[in-house]
Amino acid sequence: MRIGAVDYITASLSERMCAMTDESEQRREIGHDEYDPVGTLALITVYFLIIALLWVFMYFVEFLGNEPTVVGTFLTVVGLA
């Protein structure tokens, strides 16, 4: 037998409680307007810093550690233009 969304809503509270183990540790409800993802901003800033540093490091690995790489005609043209 299939149980759709409607049956779920009409299921008894205890049935739903056991279904919602994930939310059991929820302390508060934060809606769209109260939510300000500053932590996300902080993490992503850190990520960008790491990427930027690695990028600089790449310069040393690629251009100082090896012979120059041959780049073809097309880019040369772009470079001149």
Partner: peptide, 15 residues
């Protein structure tokens, strides 16, 4: 990256 991290953070703040 942004949406997923922001959704996790939402969960964390609710917890």
């Amino acid at each position: 990256a942004f949406t997923v991290v922001a959704s996790m953070e939402h969960g964390a703040r609710q917890r």
